[in-house]
């Protein structure tokens, strides 16, 4: 048995920019071949953490190793082994698709041909536009090209900072399918996203808010650890419904959730009890059904703790 160091390990990372604290003691260990999601809103500290792990920023405190290399002392080794796709797809807008790819391949001391099998799937979709300038591609195409560029030197670990932001749902879905295939090839993937619904596509996720990890777990386990009974409630007048549900004594919390609202209660309730209360308040077309909590519900619960 070989004892590989873990793909990624960091402990008690702190980072501040002047008076603003971006990270406040985050720790994690990620195994080889894992598809790990870093999930949280803008300003939670996702990009700062990405940059520390890709050796672009120094932590104020704490230690981190990527593929067993220290991010502070052995940054040169790390830069040779990782693929990185920053937030805004960092392509040269005035270079064509083929030129961008060729540039990044050469930069990493390799050729497109050498690792073509790894990017074939993705690049085939770009092939018809190979002479087009990157600036003229659609968001989804830019995203795919940026991924190709980050993959062209066959990195062992891939850091993707919000790769699906600003991209339409079709491209988002295709992108996650690509990530799954890369994972099958043994590449470790560390991806950040503000979209809660993408959590379920990862092996494990960390929920991040204000520089803290709220939780680290498998997505299914995270949703299941929701602590209160949860109901989906619907009626015709949503705004008034929300006010009235919040006045109802058994209510713990009530939030809009799509066209419904999600109601968490202190103890199990009989849905008919609530229907009765709401009818009394003059609501129409009332439905109350128990519902399964989502990552988003759990995120909110952890935020209010």
């Amino acid at each position: 048995m070989t004892t590989h160091p873990p793909a990624l390990v960091f402990d008690n990372i702190h980072k501040s920019f002047g008076p603003v604290t971006a990270l406040e003691g985050v720790s994690l260990e990620i195994g080889r071949g894992e598809l790990f999601g870093l999930i949280g809103p803008d300003g939670a500290g996702k990009t700062t953490l990405m940059r520390i792990l890709t050796t672009l920023l120094l932590p104020d405190q704490g230690a981190a190793q990527v593929l067993g290399y220290d991010v502070i002392k052995q940054w040169r080794n790390i830069r040779r082994e990782v693929g990185y796709m920053p937030g805004r797809f960092s392509l040269y807008q005035d270079l064509s698709v083929a030129e961008n790819l060729h540039f990044f391949a050469t930069l990493f001391g390799t050729t497109v041909a050498e690792n073509y099998d790894l990017i074939r799937d993705i690049y085939e979709q770009l092939e018809p536009f190979r002479k087009r300038r990157a600036g003229k591609l659609s968001g989804g195409m830019k995203q795919k090209l940026a991924l190709c560029c980050a993959l062209v030197h066959r990195p062992q670990i891939l850091f993707l900072d919000e790769p699906t932001t600003g991209v339409d749902p079709v491209s988002r879905q295709e992108f996650w399918q690509i990530l799954n295939r890369l994972q099958d090839q043994g590449i470790t993937i560390f991806v950040s996203t503000p979209y809660m619904d993408e959590a379920s596509l990862c092996d494990r996720v960390a929920l991040i808010q204000d520089g803290h990890f709220l939780a680290v777990d498998k997505p299914g386990a995270l949703a299941a650890s929701y602590e209160h009974p949860l109901y989906a409630v619907k009626a015709r007048d949503r705004f008034r419904l929300l006010q009235d549900v919040r006045q109802w004594p058994p209510t713990y919390q009530a939030f809009p959730f799509g066209e419904q609202l999600h109601l968490s209660t202190r103890t199990e309730i009989d849905p008919q009890q609530l229907v009765g209360y709401l009818t009394q308040q003059g609501h129409q077309e009332i439905t109350v059904t128990p519902t399964a909590p989502t990552i988003e519900d759990r995120f909110m619960e952890l935020m209010t703790h």
Partner: peptide, 13 residues
């Protein structure tokens, strides 16, 4: 400004 400096820095160059 374009963020490409990040990618260049993270490369072995």
């Amino acid at each position: 400004e374009l963020g490409t400096m990040e990618v260049l820095l993270v490369s072995p160059l």
